[in-house]
């Protein structure tokens, strides 16, 4: 035993002498990737312009060109089909972020019709997505309640706005925004006002919007409370949009993704919703109702 001890001590010491002893990283291959078309288009029944943003995705390690913004695809073809028939061909505009558009003679309309958006490009192939235009929501009232906000554990907004919706039977999703419309030289400028809600049917959406899943009040009238620190103003309005499920899921998941970026490895990964076949992004439709906020 006494003879062995020095051998073990030598082994113990020498084992830490290797050239790359503390080099504990190895390069590994990422998951396989193929560049794809990325479509973003949001159409409301009252719009007279249809915009499409057409970009492309890249592999997760391709950062050289990607750090400076989306890679726009301006040499593609973008077409919109209504119930299987080509309705519009969108033209490239060279603008960003929506780089294809078509101007309509009237509002989009199309209630109940099915639309297919098809984008193609020589090397990236063809990507498609489908939507059905939905009916505008029935927005009954929006009433401002000074100091009526419900405090929660983590925030306290002083004022409340009670919004009543007449929900139709079936699967319904909504997006709510509180805005202040100011008119200057006949041009309406819309300012978003930040709102929150502790209602269990709501979740936070992008651009300060509140998303509502109508499943729990299907076919009923429902009043939910928004909280805001905005003071009452006669120009305050509520935009209530009936939105497709794809709009709802995309807005919710992209919001969650953005929020999770703050927590990096500690947050669970978020799959951003897509309804694009052979591509990424979203083609979404909605219909909007607008109402002024009444003073209590």
């Amino acid at each position: 035993m006494k003879k062995l001890i020095p051998i073990f001590i030598a082994l113990f010491i020498c084992s830490s002498c290797g050239e790359d002893f503390f080099e504990t990283t190895l390069k590994v291959d990422p998951p396989p990737h193929e560049d794809q078309l990325v479509i973003h288009s949001f159409v409301k029944s009252t719009d007279s312009l249809v915009f499409v943003s057409l970009t492309k995705s890249t592999g997760i390690l391709e950062t050289t060109n990607y750090n400076y913004g989306p890679i726009y695809v301006n040499d593609g073809t973008v077409e919109l089909f209504e119930n299987g028939t080509l309705k519009y061909t969108l033209e490239p505009t060279g603008e960003e972020p929506f780089n294809y558009k078509v101007e309509l003679n009237d509002v989009f309309g199309g209630l109940g019709n099915t639309y297919e958006l098809k984008a193609s490009q020589d090397t990236l192939g063809t990507a498609t997505a489908e939507q059905t235009m939905i009916a505008p929501p029935a927005l009954v009232s929006a009433v401002f309640d000074e100091d009526g906000g419900t405090p929660s554990d983590y925030y306290y907004e002083s004022n409340a706005i009670d919004i009543t919706i007449d929900d139709q039977s079936g699967e319904d999703f909504y997006e709510i925004r509180l805005v202040q419309e100011d008119t200057f030289e006949n041009v309406i400028y819309i300012n978003n006002r930040y709102v929150e809600s502790v209602d269990v049917n709501t979740s936070q959406g992008l651009d300060g919007s509140i998303l509502v899943d109508g499943a729990s009040f299907d076919g009923d009238s429902y009043t939910l409370e928004l909280q805001t620190n905005t003071s009452w103003d006669p120009n305050l309005k509520i935009y209530l949009r009936a939105i497709s499920k794809d709009w709802f899921l995309y807005s919710k998941s992209l919001y969650d993704f953005r929020e999770s970026e703050d927590f990096q490895i500690f947050a669970e990964p978020v799959t951003v919703h897509t309804n694009v076949q052979n591509g990424l992004g979203v083609f979404a439709m909605g219909a909007q109702a607008t109402i002024s906020v009444d003073e209590e």
């Binding site: 995705s57 592999g59 997760i60 805005v179 651009d207």
Partner: peptide
């Protein structure tokens, strides 16, 4: 699997 830029219209769109 891949990366891209998500786009979401703001309140003044379109």
């Amino acid at each position: 699997n891949s990366q891209y830029y998500g786009v979401f219209p703001d309140v003044n769109f379109p």
